[in-house]
Write a protein that binds this DNA or RNA. Structure first.
Length: 471
RNA sequence: GCUGGGGUGGCCGAAUGGCUUAGGCGGUAGCCUGCAGAGCUGCUCUAUAUGGGUUCAAUUCCCAUCCCCAGCUCCA
């Protein structure tokens, strides 16, 4: 199999042709949520970018193995569970469940495995032991175990930060005094009274893992010591991913990851999303306002992942209309009854497939991919208007739309003429009778009545048409 | 302060040293329609932060200025 997918690699700051370790397979690890609260739309931008990447690799024929971790042990989850007075696991399970509900609503394909940090303590200890044996980790005065950054000369290769130039004291943590060097980071944190009953008694001492080690341990367990792609938000680039590289490569002596991909953050109404500005939204907040999750999916996905994106409610309305346009088009294809085949459809589908594919191959250039899709829709609509699309051609075009929707995930199953419930069907017939009798007033009233019930009627040259109104 | 990304029409967002400066949304006019919806077509008046420079030609390259965003030890 040969494909020509180019991905922007943070390591080299260049687009590179994707060459997997194993032909035809892509091993992908993506940093998942910290389950201490509902995820916000910024989190979902990252998960949607990763979903798009995965779907595109799949479209191009790769067998993708996708691992997404669930961080269920850190300061925030501990604090949250203590505040509610419930065990850590009970606390995090609640938000894990919420997370799965959210990604389902957004039509994000599930990962193959969602490993939890607390289920992988032994694997983490194994790596830390190896690092200690190699002399790159040490026990500090507080009993915590730290990674010695100066023992890993390549430290900073991902984020392009020079260790010596890091601003000291920007966020000084309590345990800093116990470290040999300020830039060293914790692999294992010794128990402190604030941790309460959250600790593990291990050969490293009583305590809990540092944040970064979980991703090294779990990615290695499920994908191997070296794998293809690792994704996350730009904020994870430093220190999280930099530290993962240090830990993993120091432990194994092998390259950890070939392609590092980072998505940019989003802003809301031109400002940084923050609780302080009152522009902080979880998916649930938006759903409660009545927005369609698929419109949210479309909106968050339709801007290139390395571009900062400005989330606005106006944009969300626009996204809803755009999705509706695609769905209307697919609906028309289902209903096409033309008999004349001009051969133009084949030309258009070939053009779309080539242009969409070429764009997506270019570091997921979704902007151009979508513009080619809408070009196709417009040109096909014109042919449909002129009744120049045969049934077979419509099926061909519809098939392509469905294949592309395997990537976009926004059209879904457009209902074909299924049977309406009897009472509704009776209303439709009644209106039709009134309409035929040119009794417009009654016909319009029934139409409005049906709309209130979620059934949209359209009168077309081919007869009456209906579809369910999407939220 | 250091490092990086960015400022494109009413809004969102592509692209490019000239060849038609995408696409979506919105507005508007026309066609179609009893009306509406969907769809098609036109228009939305020199859209590329500002000031210089290089060039036959810059929105695209260079310089300066202003503004926004991010990273600088646990926020996607």
């Amino acid at each position: 199999m040969q494909t020509n997918i180019c991905l922007f690699n943070t390591l080299t700051r260049k687009k590179e042709t994707f060459v997997p370790l194993e032909a035809g397979k892509a091993k992908v690890y993506t940093c998942g949520p910290t389950v201490y609260d509902y995820a916000h739309i910024g989190n979902f931008r990252a998960f949607l970018f990763e979903d798009l990447l995965k779907r595109w690799l799949t479209y191009r024929g790769y067998k993708v193995t996708h691992i997404m971790n669930l961080t269920d042990i850190d300061d925030k989850t501990i604090k949250g569970s203590q505040k509610q007075g419930i065990p850590l696991r009970q606390f995090t399970d609640f938000y894990v469940k919420a997370f799965f509900e959210d990604i389902k609503a957004l039509n994000i394909l599930p990962a193959d495995v969602y490993p939890k940090a607390t289920d992988h303590i032994p694997e983490m200890i194994q790596i830390i032991k190896t690092l200690m044996a190699k002399g790159v980790a040490y026990k500090g005065e507080d009993g915590s175990i730290y990674f010695s950054v100066c023992k890993f000369p390549e430290y900073g290769k991902l984020s392009h930060l020079k260790v010596g130039e890091l601003k000291a004291g920007a966020r000084v943590s309590q345990d800093e005094y116990a470290k040999e060097e300020a830039q060293d980071f914790a692999l294992w944190k010794a128990w402190t009274p604030e941790d309460g009953d959250v600790f593990w008694e291990t050969e490293l001492g009583k305590g809990r893992p540092g944040w970064h080690i979980e991703c090294s341990a779990m990615s290695t367990k499920y994908l191997g010591e070296t794998f293809d792609i690792h994704c996350g938000g730009v904020d994870n680039m430093f220190p999280h991913h930099e530290n993962e590289i240090a830990q993993s490569e120091a432990a194994t002596g092998k390259t950890f990851v070939h392609y590092w991909m980072h998505n940019e953050h989003l802003q809301v109404e031109g400002k940084k999303m923050s609780k302080r500005f009152g522009n902080f939204y979880t998916l649930r907040d938006l759903l409660a306002k009545g927005y369609d999750p698929i419109a949210i999916r479309y909106l968050l996905m339709s801007t290139h992942y390395r571009q900062q994106f400005n989330f606005t409610f106006e944009g969300l309305e626009a996204a809803k209309s755009a999705v509706e346009r695609l769905r209307n088009f697919v609906r028309r294809l289902h209903e096409a009854e033309g008999t004349t085949a001009t051969g133009k459809v084949a030309t258009l589908t070939a053009k779309l497939e080539a242009c969409f594919g070429g764009s997506m191959d270019d570091d997921l250039n979704i902007g151009i991919a979508l513009s080619s899709l809408f070009d196709f829709v417009r040109e096909m609509n014109a042919l449909l208007d002129a009744n120049l699309v045969s049934k077979a051609e419509a099926a061909e075009a519809g098939g392509l739309m469905m294949r592309l929707d395997e990537v976009l995930g926004v059209i879904g199953k457009v209902e074909v003429e299924e049977a309406l419930p009897q009472d509704i069907d009776a209303l439709v017939q009644k209106r039709e009778t009134a309409r035929k009798a040119k009794n417009w007033k009654e016909a319009d009233e029934i139409r409005a009545q049906l709309k209130a019930m979620g059934i949209v009627l359209e009168d077309t040259a081919q007869g009456i048409r209906w579809h369910k109104e999407k939220a």
